[in-house]
Amino acid sequence: MPAVVVENLVKDYGTLRAVDGLSFTVEQGEVVALLGPNGAGKSTAVEILEGHRTRTSGQVTVMGADPATGGAAFRDRIGIVLQECGIERELTITEALNHYGACYTRTRPLDEVLELTGLTDLADRRTHQLSGGQKRRIDLALGLIGDPDLLFLDEPTTGFDPSARRQAWDMVRGLRTLGTTILLTSHYMDEVEALADRVLVINQGKLVAQGTPDELRAGIADTTLVRFDQPANGGTVQELFGDLTGTATAANNRIEIRTTNPTGDLHRLTDWALKHDQELGHLEVTRPTLEDVYLDLIGGDENE
């Protein structure tokens, strides 16, 4: 049985359709990332799976239950780490973990949770004495205290400095080796690449692509990117574009050519530059990164 099955999920806010016919599954033990720009509908979709929101239509099954009606038995099996949930400032970390842990049928041992989240030395501190990064670790600890089969992580490292980010990634990898199924949202490409077995790219409430990071990259694998600064005599470079086999776009004084014939196109470019005595500043020839794939997938809509 998959951990999550979503079929044709739709959520309307008034006339706005935030989630528009989303379908996907998450297998047990998998780490799946929902990737998309702000407002893409990923948080709404996840909040429906968590039981925080009702859906307009469609089918949702999480750990064999419908989150809208699953109640306590359903919530007993999931852990939720949201962005905007505060922690009782009057309590110590241990007290908060014991308090929330008491709500679950099964709990992960306190010491284990503290160790997993690196909070052992801070266990008796009041939560209001802690830094933002330490509070995020308490969020994670509170998500784990009920020993969940499925963990929801909403943008787990937003606002982290690079070293805290690495630590958080290590924590998530540790959980994964323990067999926890994880559904995370993110808008950081490198995070998704570092953590996820599978990526679901969401834009405007729709699934626009899915696959492993490698599979997504393979979608434009035979493409090469050629980039250079807009030459000083910018007008005349446009005349050249008709001769290229690839497609050229210009933005922020950079020109980018996507081509499946890099040798020929480069030859035509350099030939043109020499004839017109122009320099192709900061010339790059690269393979597309996952970031390029992502921007490609969601970028079309921004230009509309």
């Binding site: 968590e50 925080h52 939720i80 949930c85 505060g86 929330y100 009920g146």
Partner: peptide, 15 residues
């Protein structure tokens, strides 16, 4: 509620 403590609680099995 402002601090999100109610929302956090609502995500646990506590009725």
């Amino acid at each position: 509620r402002d601090e999100g403590i109610l929302k956090r609680t609502r995500g646990t099995p506590l009725p």
